[in-house]
Amino acid sequence: MIIEQLSVFLENRSGRLHEVFEILGKAKINVSACSMADTSEFGILRLIPSEPVKAREILKENLFSVNVSEVISFAAPNSPGALSRALKILADAGIGIEYLYGFSPGDKSFIVLRPDDAKRAVDEFQKHEMELISASDLYKF
């Protein structure tokens, strides 16, 4: 249930983000989820590609700095309070959250989350019968 996410260090320079996706596109790698964190000096692009190993290699070949981190993903009803209930599970278990990103296209919300302990977060969610999204569901075209 743990998903490998790639983090790419990017300077704040126009066109740089586009290059990443161009390289992945040409290599026929799909991106299922992504988020960009920015500071005044640099940005970190976080993305979940269809083939993490290949995506990492290709980006490295193109001289990008790529870091792999473990995230989890889950679905929750698209209704008030649903995310709050999910996060409470982690809070009660004393699991910290580095960041999360997500959106709600219809009845459901999809969240990608980086907990400080991915394994325990998965255990807690499973214990509470949360709808976890598996890596194979995300590593898809």
Binding site: S7, E41, S65, N67, E98
Partner: peptide
């Protein structure tokens, strides 16, 4: 060094 390009912003900022 390559391994210090972290996913966590706080760590990168601390490194800076």
């Amino acid at each position: 060094e390559d391994r210090f390009y972290q996913d966590k912003i706080s760590e990168l900022q601390n490194l800076g």
